[in-house]
């Protein structure tokens, strides 16, 4: 009887060990998200996007066509950090915000490396063929930039800075708006372990 009890307890303990802790939902824009030094966290992307949008809307440099919003195309945004990142974490937030502001809409048929939406591009080409005319309106502005990383360490304190640089160029090739946002985080490295 005793060996059976032991095996039962052991079985329960093993099962409990396999079970994951209950997850809780947190507001991604709130203050309870996790922050790490080694990567750009979700709140860092939001923080950078908010700074960029505030600066862009404040500049008053985006010229619309009367009531029609200007057209934006996303150009090259270089990732000069050590981590693999999806640049849409920054650009999509900005695109949504610009769209809602009524100042700009983003083209999904023109972009670096081809159309973002191939179906929309096909429909656009088809319409141009049927009407025998050029229906494409060229983008008024392009967005380009770079994300840079800088690291420092003193003792067991580690610091990582992520620098977000963006430029908005007009169709005549002039950078009509530029902004830079630096996010710096510090953390301590444990004496043992990784």
């Amino acid at each position: 009887m005793k060996p059976s009890s032991y095996s039962l307890i052991l079985g329960v303990a093993l099962l409990a060990g396999c079970a994951t802790q209950n997850a809780t939902y947190v507001d991604p824009n709130g203050t309870h998200t996790l922050a790490t030094v080694n990567k750009i966290n979700i709140q860092d992307w939001s923080n950078a996007a908010e700074t960029m949008i505030n600066s862009l809307l404040d500049s008053g440099k985006v010229q619309t066509h009367g009531t029609e919003p200007a057209i934006l195309a996303i150009s090259r945004i270089l990732n000069n950090t050590t981590e693999q990142i999806d640049i849409d974490m920054l650009t999509k937030k900005m695109r949504v915000a610009l769209n809602k502001s009524g100042k700009m809409v983003t083209t999904t048929t023109q972009g670096l490396g081809g159309a973002e939406d191939p179906l929309a591009k096909g429909l656009q080409d088809q319409e141009a063929f049927i009407k025998n005319t050029k229906v494409t309106r060229n983008p008024d502005y392009t967005l380009s930039g770079k994300i840079i990383e800088d690291r420092a360490r003193v003792g067991n304190v580690r610091q990582a800075s992520y620098i977000f640089q963006l430029s908005l160029s007009s169709s005549d090739g002039l950078a009509v708006w530029e902004e830079e946002k630096t996010i710096t985080k510090q953390g301590t490295k444990p004496a043992a372990g990784w």
């Binding site: 824009n29 709130g30 709140q43 939001s46 923080n47 908010e50 505030n54 999509k92 949504v96 915000a97």
Partner: peptide, 9 residues
Amino acid sequence: NTPTSTSIP
């Protein structure tokens, strides 16, 4: 509602 309304430290 805006995607860039976030808590800024």
